[in-house]
Computed example of a mutant assay.
Amino acid sequence: MRGASLLLIVLSLVALVLNKVLADEAKQAGQWIDLSHEFSDETLYWPTAEKFSRDIVFHGINDKGFFYSANNYFAAEHGGTHLDAPIHFAQGKQSVEQIPLEQLIGDAVVISIKEQVEKDRDYQLQVKDIKKFEQQYGEIAEHTIVLINTGMANFWPDAEKYLGTGKRGDEGVNALSFPGIHPDAAKFLTHERKIKAVGLDTASLDYGKSKQFKTHRIFSAQNIPGMENLNNLDQLPATGVLIIALPMKIKGGSGGPLRAVAMVKD
């Protein structure tokens, strides 16, 4: 019995040490940052899109005596934090369920254009902004996920400040005003840097006043998915970021609600 007790003590000590080692490794791995806005009746959508709604089916103690909760929800594909699949603007390209997982998971860089946007809310990321970033942090590697921090997430969910208008319908579309990615920058990232995904903290890859959506079309033509209405990009460094961006797997979908997270590597 004495030997068995000693063995239990040794095993307990080993378990304590192992737990501490695993905990330390988890801390050293990095910090997780949520890049998604929550979905609610406050969620912002394109002025012509149906907004998110949630209907309570049941919430409480049921007739069998235990608690139960269930809801129905409705949401347009494109609204809140969501993914644009390439088929959104390119016929025959990938729909949501066809995008390879490795294209939605990987190393990312974060390019900030907050200063430019503070001076001009219709500013578009330029090639010169990318090259300035690369002068400081090095050339963007192939198959990188590129995120653009415009600072607009700070205004969520105030439609007037975030979208430039609180109006709905075509009147709202015509009044949109927010930053985006210039088509020339999209071409550069696509053909010169061969990135695998792109995202930003506004309602569209194209800036709000766009009518031709050239930036969307450039990325979509190369099967590059886009993430829109991201959150907390301010909390990410320029490099050393791992992104996991998994949308609702809608068969044939042109987009879908997205839960995106980032690990800031130590």
Rank of each mutant, 00 (worst) to 15 (best):
M1W: 10
W32T: 15
N62M: 12
T144P: 10
K119N: 13
L104A: 10
K114Y: 01
N149Y: 11
E25W: 04
V96H: 12
F58M: 10
Y73V: 03
V14E: 10
S12Y: 11
D170I: 09
K131S: 09
S177T: 00
V109C: 12
Q235C: 09
I130V: 11
S40Q: 04
F52G: 05
V146I: 08
I99T: 04
E115W: 02
F39T: 01
G199H: 02
E118Q: 14
L163R: 04
V17E: 08
T150H: 11
K161M: 14
P100Y: 11
N223H: 08
I105E: 13
G79T: 02
I105P: 07
M1Y: 10
A185P: 08
H182E: 12
Q91M: 06
H88G: 00
I195F: 09
I99K: 03
Q212L: 14
K265S: 13
A175C: 06
Q28T: 04
Y137K: 11
L189R: 00
V198M: 08
G166V: 00
L147V: 10
L104D: 06
L147T: 08
N62G: 05
H37N: 15
I145N: 03
V17D: 00
T48S: 10
M263F: 06
I33H: 09
R2E: 15
H37I: 02
R193Q: 03
F89A: 14
I99W: 05
A238R: 13
W46M: 12
A245Q: 04
A197Q: 11
P257A: 13
A153W: 01
E38V: 11
Q126F: 05
W32P: 01
A23L: 15
A175K: 01
G208A: 06
Q116T: 01
V96G: 05
S36F: 15
L246F: 15
E38F: 07
F66V: 14
F188G: 00
G65I: 07
V127S: 07
D120R: 01
E97L: 07
W156L: 07
W156T: 07
E102A: 08
I9Q: 15
L13E: 01
G253L: 09
Q222W: 00
I111W: 05
R193N: 04
L101D: 15
G164M: 04
A197L: 12
S69E: 14
I181W: 01
D170S: 13
D158Y: 11
V21A: 05
D120Y: 06
S12Q: 01
E192A: 09
T239D: 09
K131V: 15
D55K: 12
Q28D: 02
L236D: 08
D129L: 01
S210E: 04
E42A: 06
G180F: 02
L125Q: 01
D129S: 01
Q126S: 06
